[in-house]
Design a binder for these strands. Structure first.
Length: 188
DNA sequence: CCGCGGATCTTCT
DNA sequence: GAAGATCCGCGGA
């Protein structure tokens, strides 16, 4: 099995984690077998210094996990309908996190109908079976982990752009994606 | 192709 | 009580 990323991977600046997560594998073990997707798009949310971040206004019941140790999952429900998966970064006490915005299907990730399965933050959680029950899950052990691919993937270029769907700090270049990958989310 | 609105509900004010 | 780190389908051009 591919190697699980250690907690030290997440205990560094949020932007570094957001870039380093590109190409890594999200593995969700299920009874029927592991669902696996390759991360191809991320966004960095910097915490206390970032007006677009959920943690910007301080700790609430929802954002509690953001202030804890790195390498845990921050899952929340958006628009009453979709879940979004974030990875807690920085050392404990800081509240930076990385939103996973798109995956490339690798294993057991079904495409519904004609659309793609993982090209959007709400769609990839549905494809991987991630829900609020994964709030706070430790990504270095247990059924939900992030891993280094077993076989080295081909080198790729990282594209940078402003983040999508936010009202504050709209120009900050904190979205990162694998260039020319068809599973990156569509432009607005 | 583009823009608009509806779905749906938790969270915080 | 309103807004929200979304997505899809509809209608018009």
């Amino acid at each position: 099995m591919p190697r699980i990323l250690p907690r030290s991977f997440y205990a560094r600046p949020t932007v570094d984690v957001a870039r380093a997560l590109l190409g890594k594998l999200i593995v969700h073990d299920q009874a029927e077998g592991p669902r696996i997707g390759r991360i191809v798009e991320t966004e960095a949310y910097l915490g206390a210094s970032d007006p677009a971040a959920h943690a910007y206004r301080g700790m609430t019941p929802r954002t509690r996990v953001l202030f804890g140790p790195p390498g845990h999952a921050y899952v929340y429900l958006i628009y009453g309908m979709y879940h979004c998966l974030n990875v807690v970064a920085e050392k404990e006490g800081s509240s930076g996190c990385v939103l996973i915005r798109a995956i490339e299907p690798v294993e057991n990730v079904a495409s519904p109908g004609n659309g793609r399965a993982g090209n959007g933050p709400g769609k990839l959680t549905r494809a991987l079976g991630i829900t609020l029950q994964h709030y706070g899950a430790d990504l270095t052990q247990g059924p939900l982990t992030i891993r280094e691919p077993a076989t080295k993937s081909a080198p790729f270029k990282i594209g940078v752009s402003p983040r999508i769907g936010i009202r504050e700090a709209v120009d900050w270049p904190l979205r990162f994606f694998v260039t020319e990958n068809p599973h990156v989310s569509r432009r607005r």
